[in-house]
């Protein structure tokens, strides 16, 4: 699979402060790429480098195989975290203006705006001023403006903040729709459940360095600890627990069950097979629950950042 965006060894210093330190990334074409990291890690600086707002001190950026240059402005759609529109301008006028700045002609922009405004059911806002809209409403307008010129690369910085659950879902569907139509999406957020749900690839940046990246499934595989959560029905919980503890490393598990079962997390060493464990357990008790523990993005995030610090 080819990469739409490649960031190679990019560094950026502000005075004595290092915002990015030798960061490299590859965003596959057609993927949804999660750019994660704690506050102040350098995510926004990286996004600004991709948007040519900031020039890197060293390193290079390639979009679709070409060195990033001015003409690529129209290939990128950027929804910054610091959102804003001209407050005293009318919605339609403003959207037209911003679309024209991205290289659309007026008629093109009008057509597409009509399509998108109808799609998001905001057609009757055309003549309203931004200051008359609520924050969420303004965000919708801004979303339309970001995607209107049908860029190859969409960059969303916290796209769901300020939206109610219904609108957040609407925007999520739109992002998936855009991806289906061929766009590549970079997605920067602190909401791990949306990363879990949407992202194919992730990269984790902490303290100006990239500390983790890859396919989400690969990352999870890499971080799973071969631990199984089990529920066992037996007459004597304490006796069985002792027996298992002699053979495996265990800890107490917490999950909801109907009966007073023995609930354990059992960690296997890498030679043991899950089936062997299951066979062993069925020989001892009735197994009501057997699940492999896959780490969530949230857990990976916290674990990696903590150990990195």
């Amino acid at each position: 699979m080819t990469n739409l965006l490649e960031v190679n060894n990019v560094s950026k210093n502000f005075g004595s402060f290092t915002a990015l330190n030798n960061v490299s990334l590859a965003v596959p074409k057609g993927s949804i790429f999660g750019l994660l990291g704690p506050n102040g890690a350098g995510k926004t600086t990286l996004i600004r480098v991709i948007n040519q707002i900031t020039m890197p001190d060293t390193g290079s950026v390639f979009l679709d195989g070409e060195t990033l240059q001015e003409k690529h402005i129209k290939d990128i759609g950027y929804l910054p975290e610091e959102r804003g529109l001209y407050k005293s301008m009318k919605v339609g006028e403003q959207a037209l203006y911003l679309a024209q700045l991205k290289g659309l002609t007026k008629t093109e922009a009008k057509q597409r705006l009509k399509y998108w405004f109808d799609r998001l059911e905001i057609g009757d806002w055309w003549n309203k001023k931004i200051q008359e809209l609520s924050k969420g409403m303004a965000q919708k307008v801004q979303f339309v403006v970001t995607v209107l010129h049908e860029p190859k690369l969409l960059i969303f910085d916290e796209p769901f903040s300020g939206f109610d659950p219904i609108n957040a879902n609407l925007i999520k569907d739109e992002i998936l729709y855009l991806r289906e139509k061929g766009a590549t999406v970079i997605f920067s957020t602190h909401r791990m459940e949306s990363v879990e749900e949407l992202c194919d690839d992730i990269a984790l940046i902490n303290k100006s360095n990239k500390i983790l990246d890859g396919k989400l499934t690969e990352v999870k595989r890499q971080y799973k600890s071969n631990t199984f959560e089990v529920g066992l029905r037996t007459d004597n919980n304490a006796k069985l627990e002792q027996e298992i503890a002699d053979k495996f490393s265990i800890s107490t598990a917490y999950f909801k069950t109907l009966d007073n079962e023995l609930k354990l997390n059992i960690k296997l060493n890498h030679v043991d097979k899950p089936n062997d464990l299951l066979n062993y357990l069925t020989s001892k008790a009735e197994v009501s629950h057997f699940v492999e523990l896959i780490p969530s993005v949230n857990e990976i995030f916290i674990q990696t950042v903590k150990s990195n610090n």
């Binding site: 040519q52 910054p80 610091e82 804003g84």
Partner: peptide, 17 residues
């Protein structure tokens, strides 16, 4: 200053020099 206070600056500056 208006563009900074209304936070539109980042959108604009990613489109024009």
């Amino acid at each position: 200053i208006e563009e900074k206070t209304s936070r539109i600056i980042e959108v604009i500056i990613s489109s024009v020099k």
